[in-house]
């Protein structure tokens, strides 16, 4: 497509406004609200913070690998929290790991989401009587999607990711802006 810009021509001299470039470039343009557009972009490229805690991590890796290929939903693992959007808590959160997880969450830029994968991350799972296990990662960070199972199948994780995508676009439609977390709280462990 040729874009020539708003050059004054013979017909549009004087006070008549020139032809808008928008009409020429995208004649069939749809208009959308900016937050919905952002949500569309966000949900289509969810970068997950790649860290596995326990058994679920194996299924998480499996979901990314050749057979299931989570990449086709735009979900790419990223080892650094600074560029990650989603934290998939895959596995048992023990008290020794609680502080690092909290800090990882705080290091992620807004907007950010958390998927609690598996029953351990949901509520302690088989280890609910243990002295050293945090009974669900929601005691530490806000969780958006819980994926049940011990461990969840890769398909279940994919479904969880799609639910998160739905949630992102619904939140944008309902004008719920992404939660901006308050200032980091590192007092508790």
């Amino acid at each position: 497509m040729e874009i020539s810009g708003n050059q004054p021509t013979a017909s549009t001299t004087g006070n008549t406004p020139g032809e808008a470039i928008f009409e020429r470039v995208l004649p069939n343009a749809l208009v959308a609200k900016s937050n919905e557009l952002f949500a569309l972009a966000r949900k289509s490229s969810l970068w997950t913070l790649s860290f596995g805690l326990a058994c679920c991590a194996i299924e998480m890796i499996d979901a990314h690998m050749s057979h299931h290929d989570l990449d086709r939903f735009g979900v790419v693992t990223w080892p650094s929290p600074r560029q990650a959007d989603v934290m998939i808590v895959a596995g048992t959160v023990v008290k020794k790991m609680a502080e690092p997880i909290k800090r990882l969450y705080e290091q992620m830029p807004d907007p950010k989401w958390v998927i609690a994968m598996g029953s351990c991350a949901t509520n302690g799972g088989p280890y609910y009587r243990s002295y050293s296990v945090v009974m669900g990662v929601d005691h530490l960070v806000p969780v958006d999607v819980y994926v049940p199972g011990c461990p969840p199948r890769p398909e279940a994780l994919m479904y969880g990711v799609m639910e998160l995508q739905k949630k992102i676009s619904n939140d944008a439609k309902n004008r719920k802006l992404p939660v901006i977390t308050s200032k980091p709280d590192t007092s508790t462990s």
Binding site: K95, K96, S130, S132
Partner: peptide
């Protein structure tokens, strides 16, 4: 265990959660 854990969890007297 992490630094500052109270008690000896392996012992019989240590309660379950």
């Amino acid at each position: 265990l992490y630094e500052g854990f109270e008690g000896f969890p392996g012992r019989k007297s240590f309660p379950f959660h």
